[in-house]
Every structure is written in C-alpha cells, then in structure tokens.
Amino acid sequence: MEQIGANQSFAGQQLRYKHQSAVLNCEMTFSIYLPPQAVKGPVPVLYWLSGLTCNDENFVQKAGAQQHAAQHGIAIVCSDTSPRGYGVADDPEAAYDMGLGAGFYVDATQQPWAEHYQMYSYILDELPALVNREFPVDGKRTSISGHSMGGHGALTIALKNPQRFKSVSAFAPICSPLQCPWGDKVLSHYLGDDRQAWAQYDTVELIKQAKQHLPLLVDQGTADNFLTEQLKIELLVEAGQVADYPMQIRMQPDYDHSYFFIATFIAEHMAFHARALL
C-alpha cells in the first residue's frame, strides 16, 4: 500500500492510497477520511460506493461529507468503481455504462470479465481487511452507502450480508437490474444469459427474501432523468411493502441525479448512520 494523497479537512485527514488487489488482479486506488477522533482510537467506518464513470475521488471532492464525518467521528472509505489498468477488459465501444468505471459491484463469471471484475468480493472482503489492518477503524461497526450504481451496490451487499453492517443507505439507486436496460446490458455480459444468476444482485429480489432487517434509507429526486427507465424506485417501494421490510424511502421534489442532490442530503445520511454506529 502506497500513500498518493493527503489533505487536512475539518481537523481530520483525507488520504488516498494505491495497492495491488489480489481479488481484482490489478492495482487499485481508494480514499479514506479519518476524523479527528481517530487519533484517540478506532472509529466506526462507512463505505461509500460511487456510480457510473466515477472513481474514488468524486464523492471526496463533491459531497461535502467530511464535515459531518468529523462531527460524528466516523471514517469514510471510498473505493473505485471498477478494476483498471493494462489488460483489464472494457466495453469494445467504450460506452460509459459497462467496463471501466462500471463494475456494478458484482463478481463476474463470464470472460473476458471474470479475470478482473470481482468488485463484490473486493468491497465485501479484501478492501475492508486492508482498511481494518492499516487504519484506526472498528471493523465491527461498519455501514455502507452509495449513489446510483453504487446505491445498487450498497443495498445488495448489505442485504446479502446483514451481519456485516449496522445500516445501509442510498441515493438514487438502481433498484432492479433485472428490470432495466442497464442491468440487461451489463449483467448479461458479466454473469451470462441465465437471469436467475442475476437475482442475487437485485435489491428488489433480495428484499423479498430478507430475514434480517437493517436500518435502510433511500433518497430519490423526482427530477432525476434516469428515474423512470433505469432506477425503478417504485419497485423497491412495492417490494418493501409486500415483504414488510421497514425502510425510509424519501422522494425529494425537483432534485436530479447529480452531486448537488447528494451534497444536499449527505448530512442526514451521516446522522442516520451515526445512530446505528455509535
């Protein structure tokens, strides 16, 4: 692990590192914010998963989360959104919604993707193991959040592993890859044509099967240009009602899909996670 960035922020440290990932078979970067409380001992940690085209720096630079992380004494780990580097497969047409910057937080089973695109295992196991070993964080007090593709990742990872997380939240998540064009395109390439294999990465399907209920918060803007075709928030609402899964789903009038939306409500998400973590 090599440090490649460091900035003081709200009396804490915003740090950036690169490391060789055995799971992804390539070099990866991640960012971590350590609040000022970390100098006194381990602090709880929130994992943030970003959306299509992003890397580990978008949230760090645009969301304004450091102030609220410092207030609550919570570390924030921001991963990259896909494997990268020489030899890592990409969309042959260089489309933004598959390949580099579009790992979808699944473990690919099809070639050429399977060699590197194991983002589910990276987020669930390899990255937390590294963070827990190298930084003053309490790995037993962990929550997860994300935006769009990352909201899909946060929700599916938490729902599949409720014992690992204290809470989960999302901004404008892709709720059902089984029922949207992004899912049709990406999961058919990463996982193959058997749609039953896709269900393990579909929030709506996982809600139906959930035996353990985590604190769950979703914010969705009503002016989001992806809302109707890709995000399918109404399917999540319906699934939650049918499964009697308690969740907060808030429709925010006139907000779009951008980081302006995230920055507006990030304080409330940090407070939501603090109630579960502290």
Rank of each mutant, 00 (worst) to 15 (best):
Q61K: 13
C78T: 13
P92R: 12
Q118H: 12
I76C: 09
G153Y: 04
A102H: 08
Y96A: 15
V131Q: 06
I157D: 00
Y122V: 03
A129H: 01
W113Y: 05
Q61V: 10
D97P: 14
N132C: 15
Y120E: 13
S79F: 09
L124C: 03
G99P: 03
Q111G: 03
L155Q: 04
T81D: 05
A94M: 11
E134V: 00
S79H: 07
K62D: 02
Q66N: 11
G153P: 01
V131L: 06
A65R: 00
A114L: 13
S82H: 03
G64C: 07
Y120G: 01
M98G: 06
T156N: 02
A108N: 10
D91T: 13
R133F: 07
G64I: 04
L130I: 14
T109S: 12
G64K: 07
Q111F: 00
I74Q: 09
D91G: 10
V137D: 06
M149Q: 11
Y120N: 10
D138N: 12
D90P: 12
I144L: 13
Y120I: 00
Q110W: 08
T142Q: 14
C78Y: 11
A89G: 04
G146D: 01
G99S: 08
L127F: 05
R84K: 12
A154N: 06
D97K: 14
P92T: 07
T142N: 08
H72W: 15
A129S: 13
A94E: 08
M149L: 05
M98F: 00
V106M: 02
P128H: 12
D91A: 14
G85K: 13
Q66K: 02
T109W: 11
P112I: 08
I76P: 08
G101M: 05
I76V: 15
R141E: 09
G101V: 05
Q67Y: 13
Y96E: 12
A63T: 00
F59D: 04
D97Y: 15
N132H: 14
E134K: 15
M149S: 06
T142A: 13
T109P: 11
G153M: 05
K140F: 01
Q71M: 13
A114S: 15
D97V: 07
R84A: 15
G151H: 02
M149Y: 01
G103L: 11
G151E: 01
I157F: 02
R84H: 11
M119W: 03
G64N: 09
G153L: 02
I123L: 10
N132A: 13
D90T: 15
Y105L: 06
Q110F: 04
Y96L: 13
Q118L: 05
I123Y: 00
A75L: 11
S82V: 14
Q61P: 00
A102E: 01
G73M: 10
E134Q: 15
Y117A: 04
V77L: 04
A69D: 03
A69Q: 04
V88Y: 03
L124F: 11
A70D: 05
G64E: 04
Q61G: 00
G153V: 02
V77D: 11
E115C: 05
W113S: 06
E134W: 02
V60Y: 02
S145R: 00
A129N: 10
F135M: 09
L130W: 11
G103R: 11
F104D: 04
L130T: 06
D90E: 10
K140E: 14
Q67K: 15
L127E: 07
L127W: 06
